[in-house]
Write a protein that binds this DNA or RNA. Structure first.
Length: 309
DNA sequence: CAAAGTTCCTGCGAGC
DNA sequence: TGCTCGCAGGAACTTT
């Protein structure tokens, strides 16, 4: 489930439970996900308060308040391919202060980590394939952490624009799809939304990225670039934003058995025009083509050869 | 069989 | 010609 819109949807679902809440029990049912869990993971979190829950690229970042002189830490969480969170609310009244006999939720298969809060709410991380990860990083070192250091701009932020994308495409020998999937170019896109954005933009996924730069704008004597509003990369940037915003509004995409934190389904997958639609008619008005599947760098690409050039 | 993600390794091409 | 260096593509991780 997890590209930027799904992670953002999860963040919005978890935030009301986590923000300002104190952890009273942390259960790690196995020592590792993709990587080993941090040393003394449960001990370092138990008793601490979560100040806020943010997102960077496809990472959730929970701010853990300092306690007992320990430095403030960031609990970094990644959902990998199959990770999901669910919230188990207490069936009964919140227990009295000091009474820590929390009703532990019934652990389902692949429930690997569980966070219990003072309120009685419990947040459970489930991840069959275990490509997800949890890390504890000193808050002031987060930006320099290897996982964050090289991340490109947020696609919904101001730092991502046609000029930035053009710079990334320049001198590259790879197709535009590979560039958009590169998290150091723009952080948060994945296979689904790249396919969708390129389809909407009418750009072939296997087109060389560098070939899109030409029409970006001419230099006005080398002083400042003039960006044509209709230039392909300008349009692509606008469409990427549009697709991501639509998807977030729809609660993300629910593939396979995945659901949002409250168990409801995301609806964006019903809006897919390319992803997963091989053999079905292209939905671009007046196109009449058929969506085809091709493999790029070992990953499926869905596209229409009629309207994507 | 194929799967939403990322890291690591190999192999190739460019350039010195 | 030969050897680096860096990039680009593929394998690998795992379970359903």
């Amino acid at each position: 489930m997890p590209e930027l819109p799904e992670v953002e949807t999860v963040r919005r679902g978890l935030a009301p439970v986590m923000e300002g809440a104190r952890l009273v029990e942390v259960v790690a049912r196995r020592p590792d996900l993709r990587w080993p869990l941090p040393e003394r993971f449960a001990e370092r979190l138990t008793g601490r308060r979560v100040a806020g829950l943010g997102r960077r690229a496809k990472y959730l970042v929970a701010d853990i308040e300092a306690a007992n002189g320990r430095p403030a830490e960031a609990l970094v969480m990644h959902l990998g391919m199959s990770g999901s969170f669910r919230i188990d609310m207490p069936a009964t009244e919140p227990h009295a202060p000091g009474a820590f006999a929390l009703p532990r939720s019934k652990a389902a298969a692949h429930d690997h980590v569980e966070f219990g809060f003072e309120s009685g709410a419990r947040i459970v991380y489930n991840d069959p394939r275990r490509f997800g990860a949890m890390l504890l990083v000193p808050r002031n070192e987060l930006e320099e952490h290897p996982l964050f250091r090289d991340l490109g701009p947020e696609p919904l932020g101001n730092a991502f624009d046609a000029a930035t994308l053009a710079a990334a495409c320049a001198g590259r020998r790879s197709p535009i799809k590979a560039v958009l999937l590169d998290q150091t170019v723009v952080a948060g896109l994945g296979n689904i939304y790249v396919c969708e954005a390129l389809h909407r933009a009418g750009i072939a996924p296997d087109r060389m990225a560098a070939s899109l730069i030409g029409a970006i704008g001419q230099s006005d004597g080398g002083v400042a670039p003039i960006i044509h509003p209709t230039a392909p990369l300008d349009r692509l940037v606008a469409i990427i934003r549009e697709v991501l915003e639509e998807a977030i509004r729809a609660g993300g995409s629910t593939l396979r058995d995945h659901a949002q934190v409250d168990g409801t389904l995301g609806y964006f997958q019903h809006t897919f025009r390319a992803y997963g639609r091989a053999g079905e008619p292209c939905l671009t008005p007046g196109c009449g083509g058929v969506i085809e599947r091709l493999v790029q760098s070992g990953r499926s690409t869905f596209h229409c050869t009629s309207c994507q050039k």
